[in-house]
Simulated assay, not measured.
Amino acid sequence: MSETRWIHWIDGDAEHTARWHSETGMPAPRRVVPADDRMNASTAHRLTCEGTALLWQGDYHQARQLLRALGRRVDRKTSAAPTSPTAAFHLQRRASGHRARVLGRLLVPLGADHTLALRRAPDVRAACEEAYGPPPSTPSVVSLRELLGVLGAHQWRTKGVDVPAIGARIHPHYGVFSPVRGEYVDLVARAPLPRPASHGGSAFDLGTGTGVLAAVLAHRGVSHVVATDNNPRAVACALANMSRLGLTRQVEVTSGGELFPPGRAGLVVCNPPWLPAKPNSALEQGVYDPGGAMLHAFLRGLAAHLLPGGEGWLIMSDLAEHLGLRAPGELRAAITAAGLHVAGRLDTRPEHPRAADTADPLHAARAAEVTSLWRLTAQPPERSPAPPHHAQGRSPAPES
């Protein structure tokens, strides 16, 4: 974080201070009161809804139970049925934001060495160091909900995500979008490589994240892949994955403020955030992108970064269209406005469990979702020459 923030609370006659830490950008709570196993869920729900944060000083497992109880109470609140998919989306986003704020007010103390100072608490030091960096010199306070996310990310990082397209596992880091939706990876694995990218060619992977798509391209024989990202966590994650996979000679991982690296490539791959909406936290930036800024930056800059005969592969879901966040035909119009041409498109259906969850408020849109790989070129696709014209529609006589 750019500046150190502190929280204060009174326990008995003593006043306490600790450093506030939030990776999600949650502001430091203004009012903090101690809480332990004696506090029931009803009282905790009332206080947290009023804006009071609870600094837990009891048993770790009791804290987790209280967090689940708070979640059930927050979820009980119902609103009028939305009148459209767009209304359902915005209603869900508001509910999600409210839920995050309320549940984020159950706090736990971390020691100066990242030790979780609660009874029966697990050892969280390795997970915290991966997410937060080296231990600070002073104790800190974090949201229990965020800490559980840190622990979950540590487990994913340890065991990795199986990627059949490369016959190996990718290990996501905390704060880096995990490739759990394998259908878009499979699209990159089976799309026909343009000639300038094959046979010793080059490729760019924009917004590489874990580096999974760069690894797929290298696995397919692309000799030099430049993988870029402006998120330091993603750069570190991609570097670690390329080293683990033995691809450091083929894949160059770079960081910087520009979307495109210098130069041109035979293939430019981009998997931007799919929903043009505002993220509720920094950790949601892999899914939500206000106004589709990355998408449009990719389209505007693609032609200038393609070698002759090269292609840009845009990986996009049409969920935004089904939710009314992007008008039908808007994406194709943006492609045309950028002076690009569609050489082909590969489609696939989602495989994640939420697509079949009828209890999901966005089920209808998710069930109709299609993920596509758009093959874009700076020149119109080559067409086969038309057959010569013959009078009266007769076929030409066979040559002797």
Rank of each mutant, 00 (worst) to 15 (best):
Pro122Cys: 06
Lys77Tyr: 01
Cys128Tyr: 10
Gly111Pro: 09
Thr83Asp: 12
Ser137Tyr: 02
Lys77Phe: 01
Leu107Ile: 06
Arg94Phe: 02
Asp75Ile: 00
Arg105Phe: 02
Ala121Ile: 09
Phe89Gly: 06
Tyr132Asp: 14
Ala131Asp: 10
Ala117Trp: 08
Ala131Leu: 06
Arg93Lys: 11
Leu116Ala: 06
Gly97Leu: 08
Gly149Tyr: 07
Thr138Ser: 13
Leu148Ile: 02
Ala80Met: 08
Glu130Tyr: 01
Arg94Ala: 14
His90Glu: 12
Asp75Cys: 00
Arg101His: 05
Gly97Thr: 08
Val124Cys: 15
Ala88Cys: 09
Thr78Trp: 11
His114Gly: 10
Arg99Asp: 02
Ala112Ile: 01
Leu144Asp: 03
Arg99Tyr: 01
Pro135Ala: 14
Glu130Lys: 04
Leu144Asn: 02
Arg145Phe: 06
His114Tyr: 15
Leu148Trp: 03
Ala112Asp: 15
Ala127Thr: 06
Val141Leu: 10
Thr138Gly: 05
Arg93Leu: 05
Leu144Arg: 02
Thr115Pro: 10
Tyr132Ser: 09
Leu91Thr: 12
Ser79Val: 12
Ala126Gln: 10
Ser96Thr: 08
Ala100Met: 12
Gly97Trp: 05
Arg120Ala: 14
Ala88Phe: 05
Ala112Tyr: 07
Thr138His: 13
Ser84Cys: 12
Ala117Ser: 14
Glu130Ser: 04
Val150Phe: 00
Arg94His: 12
Arg93Ile: 01
Ala81Gln: 15
Ala81Trp: 11
Thr138Asn: 06
Val142Ser: 03
Cys128Thr: 03
Leu118Lys: 07
Leu148Val: 03
Ala80Gly: 09
Ala127Gln: 13
Asp113Ile: 00
Gly133Ala: 07
Gly133Asp: 11
His98Phe: 04
Asp75His: 01
Arg76Pro: 02
Asp75Arg: 03
Arg125Ile: 00
Ser143Tyr: 06
Asp123Met: 13
Gly133Met: 09
Ala112His: 15
Pro82Gln: 03
Thr86Asp: 03
Ala95Lys: 11
Ser137Gly: 15
Val150Met: 01
Val141Tyr: 13
Val150Glu: 01
Glu130Asp: 13
Arg119Asp: 03
Ala87Ser: 12
Arg94Asp: 13
Pro135Tyr: 11
Ser143Lys: 08
Thr78Ser: 14
Arg105Tyr: 03
Gly133Glu: 08
Leu116Thr: 05
Arg105Val: 00
Val124Glu: 07
